[in-house]
């Protein structure tokens, strides 16, 4: 392959840089806005940069007056529980659906696919009734339960499990390993990338989930971050944009950190499933 002309390379880089800057502008505005006062944001024509990056009032208010610490802990508990249950149950279900033979296997997989196609909002009220009947209203358990096994996770694991050679599992079986030993010692180490994908997808879903946690919560002690952000930023007849933008940064930060570390798996997950 011949090397492209240096001018062409420069042009390409130039265009990509412009594209990247345009894509980043809204994020920059959010970041800068987090350091502005309401008057700065509302003033015309307005400035890009805040008067001072040392103005941390918005962040301080969120954590000292608007209970963001509580919401953050709730969100972390919910997301951690969701990721753990999904990874555990989805790998087990994926393994069973791909590698074990049992009556009704196809039908079970069909149900998983069908469940993926039902919009969650259709299940919303029935799910709330169930939670009420179980006496779980206003608990984080109720927030996690409907998300504990997401069909998309089962689907991804089942597809990935198909690519694990039967011979490996057969060999282990001949060596006298039981089903659980095969699952934990042979199968799990082979499906690492799929586990990462499921973990990322479920983390993002549960971290950003808004409506269900709001409905389940009966007081603010059980609010998660997105719900807390929605109430924290409301001001009289308007919105406190400084708080809203600072809150958005707080909500975004863990996702951003996660992305930096797991970039490879993010891309793989999106490319492999077509789902963001």
């Amino acid at each position: 392959m011949t090397k492209p002309h240096p001018a062409l390379t420069a042009l390409l880089y130039g265009l990509l840089t412009i594209g990247a800057v345009i894509a980043l502008l809204p994020f920059a505005w959010v970041l800068f806005g987090a350091f502005k006062t309401q008057a700065e944001i509302m003033s015309a024509p307005g400035a890009w940069l805040p008067r001072s990056f040392a103005n941390l009032d918005n962040f301080v208010t969120l954590f000292s007056e608007r209970r963001f610490g509580r919401y953050m802990i709730n969100s972390l508990i919910v997301s951690a529980a969701t990721v753990i249950t999904n990874v555990l149950f989805a790998t087990m279900a994926g393994y069973a659906l791909a590698k074990l033979e049992f009556p009704g296997q196809k039908m079970v997989f069909g149900c998983v696919l069908a469940a993926m196609m039902v919009p969650y909002i259709a299940l919303f009220v029935p799910q709330f009734f169930i939670v009420v009947q179980m006496g779980l209203v206003n608990t984080l358990t109720a927030v996690v339960l409907p998300m504990a096994v997401m069909p998309i996770g089962v689907f991804i694991m089942r597809q990935f499990a198909n690519s694990v050679p039967d011979e490996l599992l057969e060999a282990a079986r001949l060596d006298g390993a039981g089903e659980f030993a095969i699952f934990f010692k042979i199968f799990l180490p082979l499906v690492g990338p799929a586990i990462a994908t499921v973990a990322i997808i479920t983390f993002l879903n549960s971290w950003n989930y808004f409506l269900w946690p709001l409905i389940v919560a009966q007081n603010q002690d059980t609010y998660t971050l997105p719900v807390g952000l929605a109430v924290a930023s409301q001001a009289a007849k308007s919105t406190d944009y400084g708080l809203l933008l600072a809150g958005a940064i707080v909500v975004l930060l863990p996702v951003l950190i996660l992305f930096l570390f797991l970039q490879k798996y993010f891309v793989q997950g999106i490319a492999g499933t077509g789902i963001k």
């Binding site: 409506l211 709001l214 409905i215 009966q218 007081n219 603010q220 719900v227 929605a230 109430v231 409301q234």
Partner: peptide
């Protein structure tokens, strides 16, 4: 007192 996001108040 429980504060609820006003645009979702009716739904809740």
């Amino acid at each position: 007192v429980t504060q609820i996001p006003s645009d979702q108040f009716d739904t809740k």
